[in-house]
Design a protein around this nucleic acid. Sequence first.
DNA 1: TTAAGAACTATGCACTTGCTTAGTTCTTAA
DNA 2: TTAAGAACTAAGCAAGTGCATAGTTCTTAA
Lengths: 189, 189
Amino acid sequence: MANGRARKYGDGRDALLAAVVAVVAEKGLRGLTYRAVAEQAGVNNTLISHHFGSRSALLEAAMEWASARSIRLSDLSATEEVNLEFAQALVELVRSEPELQLFQYEMILESRRKPELRPAAVKLYDSYVASMQQALERHGYEDTGPLARAIFAALDGLVLQQLTVAGPDAVREAIVRVGELLERQPASP
Amino acid sequence: MANGRARKYGDGRDALLAAVVAVVAEKGLRGLTYRAVAEQAGVNNTLISHHFGSRSALLEAAMEWASARSIRLSDLSATEEVNLEFAQALVELVRSEPELQLFQYEMILESRRKPELRPAAVKLYDSYVASMQQALERHGYEDTGPLARAIFAALDGLVLQQLTVAGPDAVREAIVRVGELLERQPASP
DNA sequence: TTAAGAACTATGCACTTGCTTAGTTCTTAA
DNA sequence: TTAAGAACTAAGCAAGTGCATAGTTCTTAA
């Protein structure tokens, strides 16, 4: 088993869902096979059939599971304003735990091809935009619908860059710049 | 052959590269098989081995090929400023030709797993940020490095949303809001 | 204590995969 | 005109795939 933790009877289902996130983050959806997930979870691969029935049902369940425990940007943007402190926290989150973010980028793209995944994907992104909107209004901004979507998209795009092509320093500076753009907004406190 | 155009002797290599983009956009990297690409290109699947040798070499060649002919955000951001006109043009570009963008999102994620793809991915994103930076400086902005990365990330994130979870109207409004944020910047003309 | 059902494993099969081998057809420079 | 090499095809194989079948082990309510 790739995952070091010892499991108990009855923990297989949860271990499989966690393993899906880990495998997709590391190998992509192409690497998401019954055997790879089972090895990561430390169980027999036929347990997937038992609990979920099919590969696509497993993916769908993992998407819901990951969304439910997705801290990601939500709690950050809801509690703080976009300043240097926030920028450093976000960069550090992505550096220390990239798996969940990587999984979600894969699933967003997959949701375009698999209709059964779309509701969960839309719900996840809507919740991100909504919590960003609440944070903006809490800080005195108005007409925040499109603004919240834009700011979230900027952070989302910067996280994607940090995961792939950009260094943490460049991303942190860009996040700070996003915060500076917001300060100059009308209706700002 | 899925692609209707008739091919001539010697066009196979190019047809295969174009087919890779089409197949990855439609089915993802999991659907990128010798047989799927060959059918899309209207050739025998062993021609891939002849021209590229392996699946990963094919992907690498397709990444270079697609980057070279990638209009995407580059020409848009280089010629115009971010206003309603720009927003509508970008939304329409994504709506009418989503394949190249989808392919690039897949490849960006893949570049994290396959080291041989990283240089091309970094080069592509750097060129986007650089052309955005040039556009900003042409409009009188200063200290544009992190700003250009942030603005590009916002547009990149919004394109990803339009491709997956958001409607064109919501994305257009958010792009307009990005332009309004820029107007309020210091050192703006 | 036990029986029923849930969690779990072992084996294996039909199918798809990347890629090899062996050959054919086309182009072009001499 | 032709020969050499490039583009291209046909057939097939070893490995990996999702998943079905059949069975074993564990938990828990009665």
